[in-house]
Computed example of a mutant assay.
Amino acid sequence: MPLTLTLTEGVLPQGTENLAIAKITDAMLKWHNLTGNETMKSNITAMIQVLPKSATYAGGKEFSGVWVEWKVPSFAFTDRDVQIGFGQDVTNIIYELSERTQPRENIYINVVHAVDGSWNFNGIAMTNEQITQAIAAN
């Protein structure tokens, strides 16, 4: 499940991006009751993009922002409590790692759902049912 962390240069102290990825991954697992599930954890991948301030905008003007985007099967992040709790956790993670300088209102989180059956999990195109079976077997 690819996680993309995009942020404006300087939002996080250099070198803490890896810690952000680890903490965001743990939060996702926690909110889906999958902490300790190695099958799920091994299928979470991540990419970090650090952009110059001249390349990040809000309202057409340069600003410093953070974007957290997940691409997941359609059964993930569907529960409202999960959405709210995960959003709060991630906002707090970024805020704390930024040494409390990144405004919370400039931390954005979104989820993109994949079409059922098109998800490549462990190297095989799987349906939601097949993925949940693989996770449950762990």
Rank of each mutant, 00 (worst) to 15 (best):
L5P: 00
L5R: 02
L5C: 02
L5Y: 05
L7G: 01
T8P: 00
V11T: 07
V11H: 01
L12D: 00
L12P: 04
Q14E: 14
Q14L: 13
T16N: 07
E17N: 08
A20F: 04
I21P: 01
A22R: 13
K23Q: 14
D26E: 12
D26V: 05
A27L: 05
A27S: 13
L29Q: 10
L29Y: 07
K30D: 09
H32D: 06
H32K: 09
N33Q: 15
N33Y: 11
N33P: 07
T35F: 10
T35P: 03
T39L: 08
T39G: 08
M40K: 06
I44K: 01
I44V: 11
T45C: 14
A46L: 08
A46G: 09
M47Q: 12
Q49E: 15
V50I: 13
V50S: 06
L51K: 08
P52T: 04
P52C: 06
K53I: 10
S54M: 12
S54F: 08
A55N: 15
T56P: 04
T56L: 06
Y57L: 09
A58Q: 14
A58Y: 08
G59I: 03
K61A: 14
E62G: 05
F63M: 12
V66H: 02
W67Y: 11
W67G: 07
W67S: 10
V68N: 00
E69L: 14
E69N: 15
W70M: 05
K71N: 11
V72F: 03
V72I: 11
V72R: 01
V72Y: 03
S74V: 07
S74K: 13
A76N: 12
T78S: 15
T78P: 12
R80H: 11
R80M: 10
D81F: 11
D81S: 12
I84Y: 10
F86R: 02
F86S: 02
G87H: 02
Q88H: 14
Q88E: 12
D89T: 09
V90H: 03
T91R: 02
N92C: 06
I93Y: 00
I93H: 00
I94T: 00
I94R: 00
I94E: 02
Y95F: 15
Y95I: 03
L97T: 05
L97V: 05
E99S: 12
E99Y: 04
E99F: 07
R100T: 08
T101M: 15
Q102W: 00
Q102V: 04
Q102A: 06
P103A: 05
R104T: 07
R104L: 09
R104K: 12
E105C: 12
E105V: 12
N106V: 08
I107H: 01
Y108C: 01
I109L: 08
V111Q: 03
V111D: 00
V112Q: 11
V112C: 10
H113M: 06
A114N: 13
A114M: 15
A114W: 08
A114P: 01
A114S: 13
V115S: 07
D116W: 04
D116F: 03
S118E: 11
S118H: 13
W119K: 04
N120S: 13
N120P: 05
N122L: 14
I124A: 15
E129T: 14
Q130E: 10
Q133M: 09
Q133H: 15
A134M: 09
I135C: 08
I135G: 01
A137T: 09
N138V: 09
N138M: 09
